[in-house]
Computed example of a mutant assay.
Amino acid sequence: MNSNEALKAVLSSIRDGNLDVEQAMEQLRDLPFQDLGHTKIDHHRALRNGFPEVIYGAGKSPEQIADIFKHMCGRSNVLATRVSKDAAEYILGRFPDVEYNPTANTLTCKSQEVKYGSGQVGIITAGTSDLSVAEEALVTCDMLGSRAAIISDIGVAGIHRLFHRIEEIRKFTVLIVVAGMEGALSSVIGGLVEQPIIAVPTSVGYGANFSGLSALLGMLTSCASGVTVVNIDNGFGAACAACKINRLLDKHSKNA
């Protein structure tokens, strides 16, 4: 049961006389946030912005991540990003239902059915070396209720590969374009399609790439109008933005 459903259940029980105020207070005690000492889990985040809190695994010990999973699983579906292989092995040993994606470096726990919207996110990569960021976006989209697919290795160095897939690309609702080096792919696609584009610069590239800075600046100064840019290697952030666009499109189409 997610936070919305849990809160509705408590309020309905009070209304129907099946729960008194003290019992309700006890059940609501951990709904705003739960203090684990090392972490304060924000259980109300889904009520505010539609998505549950996501665990950022980098810098956390395996024990801390496992403790967070223990308290979040069952309340909502759980996603952890930037999880090391060692931490993943520790958590998988304690939670057999958790899945690890070694390319995306994500852990997921689906205790509830994911409700998908009607739109689909296209995740486009310039090269195979960008796949870790693209996979992070793919896993995030899936957990947040947007169907998504990756089209990989169609960068501008062999632009005929892009043109070969362009009609397929135009069928997606939102596009996430992932590229390193000079980050030109988002500008090229931006001049060919009408969908919203979320560009993700990656740290892929040789020395003057400055660990993704050249791709970031190239995308920010794109001559293609309407290209939005997230931070370097931030497949998660791009997917969150794409899912919000999809949700709003669904909402407006239902109200039309």
Results as ranks from 00 to 15, higher is better:
Ser84Thr: 15
Arg170Val: 03
Phe69Asp: 01
Ile14Gly: 04
Cys240Ala: 07
Ile41Thr: 01
Leu138Val: 00
Thr39Glu: 11
Phe172Asp: 01
Asp97Arg: 12
Val121Trp: 08
Gly218Val: 06
Val98Asn: 07
Gln64Leu: 03
Leu36Tyr: 06
Val204Met: 01
Ala80Glu: 06
Asp142Ala: 10
Thr106Trp: 13
Leu162Pro: 01
Ala179Met: 06
Val139Glu: 14
Gly180Lys: 04
Gly122Arg: 08
Gln120Trp: 01
Gly218Glu: 10
Gly212Trp: 00
Ile232Ser: 01
His43Cys: 15
Val114Tyr: 13
Leu138Lys: 15
Thr128Ala: 12
Arg147Gly: 06
His44Phe: 13
His43Ile: 12
Ser203Cys: 03
Ser146Glu: 10
Leu36Val: 05
Asn231Thr: 13
Gly127Met: 11
Ala24Val: 07
Ile150Ala: 07
Gly119Phe: 02
Asp35Val: 01
Ser146Cys: 09
Ser118His: 15
Lys85His: 12
Gly59Glu: 09
His44Tyr: 14
Glu53Leu: 03
Ile189Asp: 02
Ile150Glu: 06
Ala157Phe: 05
Gly74Thr: 07
Val188Pro: 10
His38Pro: 05
Val193Arg: 13
Gly183Met: 07
Val227Met: 10
Leu216Asp: 04
Val188Met: 05
His43Trp: 15
Gly127Asn: 06
Ser253Thr: 12
Val178Ile: 03
Ile123Ala: 06
Leu79Lys: 10
Arg161Pro: 00
Asn18Thr: 13
Lys244Pro: 00
Ser203Pro: 00
Thr202His: 04
Thr125Leu: 04
Phe51Ile: 11
Ser253Cys: 09
Gly207Ala: 08
Asn49Val: 12
Ser222Ala: 14
Val188Lys: 10
Pro196His: 06
Leu175Gly: 03
Ala9Met: 08
Gly212Thr: 01
Ile151Lys: 03
Gly127Phe: 13
Ala256Phe: 07
Gly17Thr: 05
Ala87Arg: 06
Thr103Tyr: 03
Thr81Ala: 02
Ala46Leu: 05
Cys240Tyr: 14
Gly191Glu: 00
Val78Cys: 06
Ile176Pro: 02
Asn231Ile: 08
Gly17Cys: 04
Gly218Ser: 14
Phe69Tyr: 14
Ile14Asn: 07
Pro102Cys: 10
Gly145Asp: 02
Glu135Trp: 05
Lys60Asp: 03
Gln195Cys: 04
Ser118Asn: 15
Leu213Ser: 02
Val188Phe: 09
Val21Thr: 15
Ile124Leu: 14
Ser225Arg: 15
Leu11His: 09
Leu7Met: 12
Ser186Leu: 09
Glu113Leu: 13
Ser118Trp: 12
Ala66Met: 10
Ala137Val: 02
Ile151Ala: 00
Val139Ile: 14
His71Lys: 15
Asn4Asp: 04
Leu185Cys: 07
Gln27Ala: 00
Pro196Ser: 02
Ala66Pro: 03
Val174Pro: 08
Gln23Pro: 00
Phe95Thr: 01
